[in-house]
């Protein structure tokens, strides 16, 4: 069995299973946790929980003027990184084939040149994010191994993917295998580290929004 056979076969199967297990566990755990009933009566003008959650979530998509500066940078850089990643992940023909083989749905691909640009932008954005984390004393203080490892498993598929496409430094079969293994690593780490925010961001922000909207606080 070659490295590529291992990556395409057992490595991906195991990572899919670990990902599914971890996500199911953590999501269900969060949803079924004992909630404390909010005993304070809601303000008269308070919106329903759903509306409050949606509004609060939308409000959090962009920082208030008061937080311009550092927050503006992390927000913009965050969007650049996430959109870049999304374009590269959902627009590249081989990725679509991958997703189609897993989920059975298909859509048109973007030109390879655009994907390369998006990937490079994503990578630059990731490097800036890491630089910012190192540069800011507060961020550095609160950063844990979890943050750095989550950054690493996100950056690795981007780097290995760019290398595979450009056939840099190693034969394609090795680069493709490394790329797929890096994706497997990301999937395995995903539910247990900070990457889980992809799911939990909806839970945490909505919960905060509901809490405040009941009290009539405008976020």
């Amino acid at each position: 069995m070659t490295l590529l056979d291992f990556a395409r076969g057992p490595a991906l199967t195991v990572s899919f299973a670990v990902f599914t297990f971890g996500v199911a566990w953590r999501l269900l755990f969060v949803v079924l946790l004992p909630w404390s009933r909010d005993r304070a009566p809601a303000r008269a003008a308070a919106p329903t929980a759903v509306l409050g959650a949606v509004r609060g979530f939308a409000r959090h998509l962009w920082p208030r003027k008061a937080f311009a500066g550092a927050a503006r940078f992390t927000t913009v850089n965050g969007y650049v990184m996430h959109f870049g990643l999304a374009i590269a992940f959902f627009g590249f023909a081989p990725h679509i084939l991958f997703l189609q083989s897993v989920f059975g749905v298909q859509w048109p691909n973007l030109p390879s040149g655009l994907i390369s640009v998006a990937s490079v932008v994503t990578l630059v954005s990731l490097v800036l994010a890491l630089g910012h984390r190192f540069a800011s004393p507060v961020l550095r203080l609160i950063s844990t191994a979890n943050d750095y490892f989550s950054w690493f498993v996100t950056a690795l598929p981007v780097v290995s993917g760019l290398m595979a496409v450009s056939h840099l430094w190693a034969p394609y079969e090795i680069l493709l295998a490394v790329h797929l293994l890096s994706v497997a690593l990301l999937l395995i780490w995903f539910p247990f580290g900070k990457l889980m925010h992809a799911f939990l961001v909806f839970v945490t922000r909505s919960e905060t929004a509901v809490h405040y909207s009941r009290r009539g606080t405008v976020l």
């Binding site: 056979d5 395409r8 076969g9 057992p10 991906l12 199967t13 195991v14 899919f16 299973a17 670990v18 990902f19 599914t20 297990f21 971890g22 996500v23 199911a24 566990w25 953590r26 999501l27 269900l28 755990f29 079924l32 081989p94 990725h95 084939l97 991958f98 189609q100 083989s101 897993v102 493709l176 797929l180």
Partner: peptide, 22 residues
């Protein structure tokens, strides 16, 4: 670029296990 394994059974089991543990 596609996986060669047949992960349905493994993923199904993992989902059930995850729900159970959660």
């Amino acid at each position: 670029s596609t996986p060669t394994g047949h992960p349905t059974a493994a993923v199904g089991t993992a989902a059930v296990a995850g729900i159970g543990v959660g």
